[in-house]
Nucleic acid binder design. Sequence first.
DNA 1: GCTTGTTGTAATCGAATGATTACTTAAAAG
DNA 2: CTTTTAAGTAATCATTCGATTACAACAAGC
Lengths: 238, 238
Amino acid sequence: MSSVAKKTAGTGAPETGSSSQATAERIPAAQRRELILEAATGVFAERGYAGSTTDRVAKAAGISQPYVVRMFGTKETLFLEALDRAQGKLLRAFRDVIAAYDAGELAEELQHLDPAAGSGRPGQLKQLMAIAYADLVADRGILMMLMQAFVAGHEPAIGARAREGFLDIYRLVRDEAGLSPETVRDFLAQGMLMNTLIGIRLPEVYEQDPTAEELLECTLRSKLPMVLKASKAQRRAG
Amino acid sequence: MSSVAKKTAGTGAPETGSSSQATAERIPAAQRRELILEAATGVFAERGYAGSTTDRVAKAAGISQPYVVRMFGTKETLFLEALDRAQGKLLRAFRDVIAAYDAGELAEELQHLDPAAGSGRPGQLKQLMAIAYADLVADRGILMMLMQAFVAGHEPAIGARAREGFLDIYRLVRDEAGLSPETVRDFLAQGMLMNTLIGIRLPEVYEQDPTAEELLECTLRSKLPMVLKASKAQRRAG
DNA sequence: GCTTGTTGTAATCGAATGATTACTTAAAAG
DNA sequence: CTTTTAAGTAATCATTCGATTACAACAAGC
């Protein structure tokens, strides 16, 4: 039992093509880790912590379930790492906007802002960050991952991390963008509304329901077309 | 095997006292139904759809698990009925505020409103409804039940019901309170933020974290003491 | 070639869970 | 008192799921 039928029977082609390969391509653990976290983010975002299985994450990542468990130890640890990753991406997106604004690199974007919402640095940054947030909304993974953590507060470890993460975001917007607490509150509130509209999949009924249309247009504004497009793409993907 | 040891051995006292009775008190199905829905609301609010078990609901209602399943057919049906009930309570709370306002019964409450937020009917109603919402937040059951439905959109039946419910609330606030779409949006956004702060249990770290303190005060305003009190009470209850 | 560590899977196990079946027992009907 | 109906449970079943164990195969060092 050697030297014959080493990997796949029949053709010598490695099975990197489509789904359900017998054995995944060998790649370094660090890269595999990131692939699993990416897959886990999508799965957890869609189905929540309790509703997700390590096997579904494994299938989404193209590997076997035991490998997922061995690499992260427990499902909870996997969730927490995916959560940290998502929070990090959100913080980075906000910091990038602030840095670009302060470097004067957003002259073009400033033309499209609403002057009524404030023409100083805080007012403009608030609008620019809202746009950055809507860009992330289109993804559906990052922000719904956070949202799922916010409603999983009964799991002690997840609740604690979610609290810390939310307060981190609050402080970033308040201190680095320089918004007043009330303005930060309104900014976060708009974000939570966007999350909710995405969570209930309102874009999917945009064309059939005038009320949904009005609420989406009023909330997402210029970012609506992009979100609708992403919604359709993700429905095709399943 | 008759006439002796009919219900409980030993004392003839019926076991209506505390928890874990062998057989629950017999009450009409309609009343039992409401008790189960009340219990289910608390359980689903806390742990979400996937994270809740029919057995936990049964224990919270003081009856056996098979009875829960037989009365509602499936866990999904139970969730949908609890969701309808929660939505109904929210809609009724808003309608009550509007009716009381239009009947001139809220003269005392009007004294405490912020004149800067609008002194016409829409502006005053928006503030009064926000207060009514915060009253519900203190409960933690009703609103988190809705929130859990909002993030369970991947379950087709739940997602559809959640969409309809959200749009019902939107239309109510827009048409019956007479707010503009933008004002309704801001109103709903504040509500979603409150839900989120409750979801991550921010009131539980109010005293230990100055940032949490600032955000909670800024969001809940006059209703903060009540929410903090409710938070402590629910922590004691577990 | 031989060894060794890394990447990966198949098989399986125990606990949890939604649902079903069959059975009690209190109360209403006659 | 007897019968019937409604309220409720114990026992159990088939799945599902997170985790564990044991093993296979590829690559690098020697």
